[in-house]
Each structure stands twice: as structure tokens, then as C-alpha cells.
Simulated assay, not measured.
Amino acid sequence: MMRLSYSTSGRPQCEIGTLAIPLSALVATAILIICIIVVCGVSLLLGSTYIPVDSLLKNQLTEAQNFAVWDVRLPRLLLGALAGWNLAMTGVMLQAISRNPIAEPGLLGLSQGAMLTILIVLILTPNISLSLLPVAAIVGGGGVAFILIALVGKGTKNGIEILLMGIALDTVLSSLNGVLLLYTPPETSYSVTAWLSGSLFQASKESLLSLLPWLLLSLPAAMLIGRSLNRYELGEDMASALGEPIHITRPLILIVAVTMSSVAVSAVGPITFLGILAPHLIGHFCPLSGRVRLWLSGLMGALLVISADLMTRLLSSDTPVPLGLSLIIIGVPMFMMICRLRAHKATHR
């Protein structure tokens, strides 16, 4: 049974059984879902093949329009939304366990590690099945996470030290990827180059189906580890005092984060900054934590990616605009504005 109540801090919340959800979170969820639906609708209609609204609603499409909607645009939207969801949630997880607000897969080297193994696999077996690329990406991302833990040390609690070590690993792996790209078979070099900049041009029903099981793992994982993230945000010592089994949950959260980010990289390439941008946008407008921050950040990440993809398709001419560049064009001004608003608010307290 659903009923309205108030939390101990006086904020209105909606109670569903034993679950209490802040009312602001429900409002933010509704707004984000409406925005995602609107952007998806516009994306289905616009492009090189124009789709009239009444034709789409009445399912009276020509063969070319039917192909554009169901075989090109819809798989592209779904794949982009799921990848954005995963990358944004990964940013929340890494920021919580590293105690660093700018931690994300790109800065910690996880994305470059996933890219490295994918490039090696493509060089050795150019005709590999798409269903095996996420496995290769997880191996690479997991290897980088293991190296990072070994280099930093188990007792380190300094988020800056972890971030700096991750940036160093990311730089080395980026150089290795650049060298390997020179040896990529000519028939795959163009697609790999586009993928390195972030791209959804290879999205199809087949690629979506091969990645969907991996991407959908994020939902139960978020529900399971959300409470732990809430405690980690209070600090490791406080989390231990509250009974959090850090020696179990920290590796578990890292494994989930590596899996989610690596699979997303195998789908759309290394989209940097999204893991920082989405959680901070949500934190400014709806400052919550735990499971709520996870799912709101995931929705924001999905919205940002499909919006950037729409911008990519509308601006494309003979030379396609990389998805990563479109995301930066959209996201960076928003991020700078939020940072400025925070600074203004802090100086006028």
C-alpha cells in the first residue's frame, strides 16, 4: 500500500510497504522519463529518411521508412540508452568506493583496458562474433582494476592517490591502443577508429541482442549494492562502524562497476566524462544518495547519450560527428554552469 509520510529530516516521502522513496526522487524520475520519451520520439522521426508522425502512429510506413525505424533508429536508441545508463551508474559506484567526486571509468583506466583487449581480439580474429566482445572487454577492464588495486595498496584511503594512479594507467594504455591501431586489419580500421571516438553507427538488432543480457545486469546489481553505497558515502570508517562488510562489498562493487563499464565500452566505445557529468547533474538538482542516486544518474546518463546521438545524426553531413564529441558539446556547458552555481551559492551563504 502506498502512502505519503515525512522522513526524520522533514522531507516528504512515499512509502511502499517497507520501502521509503523521497518524493523529490519520484518527481525527478518522472521528469527524466518524459524527457527520454520525447527525445526518443524525435529521434525516430528525424534523419535522412523523414518519418511523418501520423504514419508512425498508424503504422503506415513504406519499406524504407520501416527499415529506418525498426532496423536502424530503434536499436541505436536502445543501445545508446543502455550504455549511458551503465556508464553513469558506474561513475556513482567508483566515486563512492574511491571517495573521489571525479572518479569514472575513463579516468581510472578501465575504459582503456577494455579497449586494449578488444583491439587485440580484433587484430587476432577479425571475424569474431559480437557476443564475445563484451567478454574480452570485461577481461581487460578487470585486469586494469586488479593492477590499480595492486599499485595503490589495500590500505590506501586517499581518493586523489587512486585517481592519479588511474590517470597514469589510462595514459599508458591509451598509448598502447594507439600503437595497436596501426596493426589493425584494413577492413576493420575505419570502424575501430570511429568506435574509439564513441559511436553508435554499428548498432543493430544483432548487436543489441548480444549485449542486452550483460547490460540488464545493472538493474538487480544496483538494487543489491545501493544500500552499501549509501554507507560508503559517509566514509569507510563510518561504514565499518555501521556494520558494512567492506572486505566483501568493496570488491563486489568494483566487479559490478568493471562489468558494466566494460560492456558499455564494447557497445559504444570509450565515452569519457559521462560518469562524472550525469551524477553531478543529478546531485545538483536532486541531492540524494544510495539506490536513488544510482537510478537517477542512470536515467540522466541514458538521456544524455540519446540526446548526443540525436545531435550527431542531425549535424552529420559527409563526415559523421563522433558521439563522444556531441556529448561533450552538450554536457560540458551544463557542467560548467552547475559548478558556477555551486560556487556562487557557497560564497553567498
Rank of each mutant, 00 (worst) to 15 (best):
R3M: 14
R3F: 15
P12R: 13
T18A: 15
L26I: 15
A30G: 14
I33T: 07
I34M: 13
V39R: 02
V42M: 13
L46S: 14
A64M: 08
D71W: 08
L74S: 07
A81P: 07
L87N: 01
V92C: 06
M93S: 10
S98I: 12
L107H: 02
G109H: 03
Q112R: 15
T117Y: 02
V121E: 01
L122R: 12
I123Q: 09
L124S: 07
I128P: 04
S129E: 11
V139K: 02
I147K: 04
G153R: 09
N158V: 13
L169C: 09
L173P: 01
L181D: 10
L182A: 11
E187N: 12
Y190V: 09
W195F: 08
L196V: 07
L209D: 10
S218K: 03
L219T: 01
I225Q: 02
I225H: 00
G226C: 09
R227C: 04
R231H: 04
G243C: 15
H247Y: 09
L252N: 04
I255K: 02
A264G: 09
A267F: 08
G269N: 10
G275N: 04
I276P: 02
A278E: 03
H280M: 02
G283C: 14
L288S: 07
R291E: 10
V292E: 12
G301S: 03
M311V: 12
L314G: 03
S317W: 03
L323K: 01
L327F: 07
I328M: 15
M334K: 11
C339W: 13
A346Y: 04
